[in-house]
Design a protein around this nucleic acid. Structure first.
Lengths: 232, 232
DNA sequence: ATTATTAATTGTCGTTTTGACAATTAATAA
DNA sequence: TTATTAATTGTCAAAACGACAATTAATAAT
């Protein structure tokens, strides 16, 4: 039988940086690690890639298992493969970032895992190279969101322009002129204005919008230039 | 001793899509595979990730070994990890794309490996999922090159605007107005005009330019909008 | 009822960028 | 001297950008 003799074999894992938005701040979802080493320390959601699944499959499985959510926005980020990154045994990990509607999650929380939302800017130290993964994910989110309409993934089906505005400011850690922002976001043609208003945040109330799914699917690869004065 | 018991272990490889430009067309560098299965079939340059190196290290090592070149532009693309992608044994491969100056290569060719340049649009069938890798790499190259000044990596230190123009047209598979192109590319401020002219291509001759390394290193992450009417 | 208050929404306008298109220039060959 | 060829510079209207202001729709206070 043919074989690749004498080549070393490694464990392969996936780790997910799960972003959410509570209406005010950008957050990430962390779990208490369930196995040694570093048991009970905070870490990203992760798991080993099984024999019959691809890394993408594994990431989806892990997310389903730990949050109950299916079909979430998931994007491969990069591989982390320094020889010594896991102290026990060589393990390469594929980093993914996920965007979920934080409210959807709360309803389906799987209590078997100790999971908790943390402010992106006020999170505990994480195990291994997970801190670096979060930094990288945040940078990639910022990059991608400047060009493609992906931040909708973190909002409910019905959302308002002001909500979207705050989310963009959070992700980019900067102030954006509300007047120019609303003009730019509506000019994409991706939003459908609803008759209903959200009156919780102000006296006047803000109109709800929903995503034009057809145009969104057709244009999700288009370059948009959603950030003013963009420098990365 | 702590261990991750009973988790499956896999081979991990790297595969490099090496792009080059001969002045007229975009090309990729392929090698004849040196081991079973599929020995002597055309494939990407690749190799297994060794025990003491990261995937990035492995990709650089493979490139050095097969082309003699060091310090080439190398970017991690994505991981290919479908369970059945290698018929012999489960192997996950990290795809990289590389941009090299085709002339530099010719001078340092390592004849131990049967390597050959192929037109990107007229290449042989490749083993495993390498055809998909090439397709993905091409798409990513196009995407990246539209926003960042990376195509210089495929040209000699001294190059002309018309050379750059043809390269952009090749990568994007489209015609670009020469007048608007030269204005846009010079307005980036990344080019330094030299006194010398290239007279091989025309009677008038075209001025040589070189890259402003300082500005290039400082701005390599900036968004530029180098393609007109950009849709991806 | 009238007014003050607050946040959402629509509006203005000069500057810059874009991209379609044409004229000029610098060299060589006839 | 002229024809030829490709590089380079030029023109301009339309669109996009971004700094900044006014108006509007509601509620709360008087």
């Amino acid at each position: 039988m043919i074989e690749y003799s004498r080549q070393p074999h490694y464990l392969v894992a996936v780790d997910c940086i799960v972003f959410g938005f509570d209406g005010e701040h950008l957050k990430i979802l962390l779990v208490k690690r369930g196995l040694e080493p570093e048991i009970n320390k905070w870490s990203l959601m992760g798991g080993f890639v099984g024999a019959d699944e691809s890394p993408d499959d594994a990431a989806n499985r892990v997310l389903k298992k730990m949050t109950g959510l299916e079909g979430v926005y998931l994007e491969q980020m990069q591989i982390y493969g320094e020889p010594g990154r896991d102290p026990i045994e060589r393990t390469l990990s594929v980093g993914y970032f996920a965007l979920i509607d934080i409210h959807k999650y709360e309803a389906q929380l799987n209590d078997d895992y100790e999971a908790e939302w943390f402010l992106i800017n006020d999170r505990p130290k994480l195990i291994f190279d997970h801190n670096q993964m979060v930094t990288d994910a945040r940078k990639k989110l910022r990059y991608k969101a400047a060009l493609h309409p992906i931040l909708f993934e973190m909002l409910p089906k019905k959302f308002t322009i002001p909500q979207l505005h705050i989310l963009f400011e959070e992700v980019n850690d900067t102030k954006i002129d509300t007047r120019n922002f609303s003009r730019k976001i509506t000019s994409t043609g991706l939003l459908i204005k609803l008759a209903e208003k959200d009156r919780t945040g102000s006296k006047k109330g803000a109109f709800y919008f929903k995503l034009d799914k057809k145009k969104y699917n057709a244009n999700s690869q288009a370059f948009l230039n959603l950030m003013p004065n963009l420098k990365v």
